[in-house]
């Protein structure tokens, strides 16, 4: 048996086709339907726009453009590169509890360059997923124009919710 479509279709900032909702007896808002490329196209660099929320857990979309601030968290986070190329610097914080104590969840922006040992560098392209280990400071650097990141984390002080702007209604 053969199939005509042999090309895998991924999205990008330059090429995405948003789907939609055919309502039969429902309200589109129930589905909080958005598109990460569309959200990133309208966002500020590294603005942490919430596109998925399950109680305190969130998925955030980030527009990767230039170099981000340093962030850390008291728990593991992960990031998927949906478009572009990104480098991630990691630093093992000398005193992670001071910046992100265990009872504080979500990504915390560092007010000053991280103090600690350099852990390494990761160079990611589209489709790559990286661990952002708890207690480590990290920053993103887009190396090929503007990229799109999807962050698995917990709602924090820098999370931005604007459901009415980003979702089908």
């Amino acid at each position: 048996m053969s199939f005509t479509d042999t090309k895998t279709v991924f999205g990008s900032l330059d090429s995405y086709v948003k789907g939609g909702i055919e309502v039969i007896d429902d309200d589109r808002r129930h589905y909080a339907f958005s598109n990460v490329f569309e959200v990133a196209s309208l966002a500020k660099p590294y603005e942490k726009v919430v596109v998925g929320k399950n109680l305190r857990y969130v998925i955030e979309t980030l527009r990767a453009e230039g170099t981000s601030d340093w962030f850390t968290a008291s728990h593991d986070e992960s990031v998927i590169v949906m478009d572009g190329s990104v480098e991630i610097d990691l630093v093992k914080l000398d005193d992670p509890e001071r910046i992100a104590p265990a009872h504080i969840e979500g990504s915390i922006r560092l007010e000053a360059p991280p103090q600690g040992r350099r852990m390494g560098l990761m160079k990611l392209r589209r489709g790559h997923q990286a661990l952002l280990p708890k207690g480590a400071a990290y920053r993103f650097r887009s190396t090929d124009g503007v990229g799109v990141l999807v962050l698995q984390t917990i709602h924090g002080p820098h999370s931005v919710e604007k459901w009415s702007e980003i979702c089908l209604t």
Binding site: T6, T8, I80, M119, L121, M122, R125, R126
Partner: peptide, 26 residues
């Protein structure tokens, strides 16, 4: 068959080889 199989480039400092980690999800 057309999905790129390249893995991320990882440059871990000594002692952090087991914490600096990424993979090609696609």
């Amino acid at each position: 068959l057309d999905v790129p199989q390249d893995e991320p480039v990882i440059e871990a400092e000594p002692g952090f080889e087991h914490e600096v980690h990424a993979f090609n999800l696609f």
